[in-house]
């Protein structure tokens, strides 16, 4: 990955509509039941992940070589059913260590009014081919 990528933003994928079914499936997959109210705290990763996939596709990076190193969400308000979320991902930092790219990203999650719902910051470790094959 080239250092010129730092500071670049990637256009948001199509807005993500938060449905009760999506929240129920997400909650059930970690052994919870969704019974109305705010979405599970980590649910914003769903649209954020889609935005990350757009970034990986643009950079021709194979997802199976990517490991999640760090993730944080800062919340302005909880996600609720009916939200239409858009995510703009920006590459904040890039370090190269031992053939791996360590990419820091910031994902702004906004609602249909353009108001910030939460911000996700992530560190992605892109494992270099040479290292993996040793």
């Amino acid at each position: 990955m080239d250092a010129s990528i730092v500071g670049r933003s990637f256009p948001p994928p199509a807005p993500f509509e938060v449905t009760e079914a999506a929240l129920a499936d997400f909650a059930a997959s970690v052994g919870q039941s969704y019974d109305g109210g705010p979405a599970p705290l980590t649910f914003p990763i769903v649209p954020a992940f889609a935005a990350m996939m757009g970034f990986l596709a643009a950079e021709e990076i194979d997802l199976s070589r990517v490991v999640h190193g760090e993730q944080k969400f800062s919340y302005e308000r909880p996600v609720v059913v009916g939200d239409l979320l858009s995510v703009t991902l920006t590459v904040a930092t890039l370090r190269q260590i031992g053939g791996n790219d360590i990419v820091g990203t910031t994902s702004a999650v906004t609602d249909a009014d353009g108001a910030l719902v939460c911000t996700g910051t992530a560190t992605l470790v892109h494992r270099g081919v040479e290292e993996a094959e040793q």
Partner: peptide, 12 residues
């Protein structure tokens, strides 16, 4: 309560 959380995160 979910609404009380302003930040959640961790380093894997």
């Amino acid at each position: 309560a979910t609404g009380d959380v302003s930040e959640l995160g961790g380093k894997f």
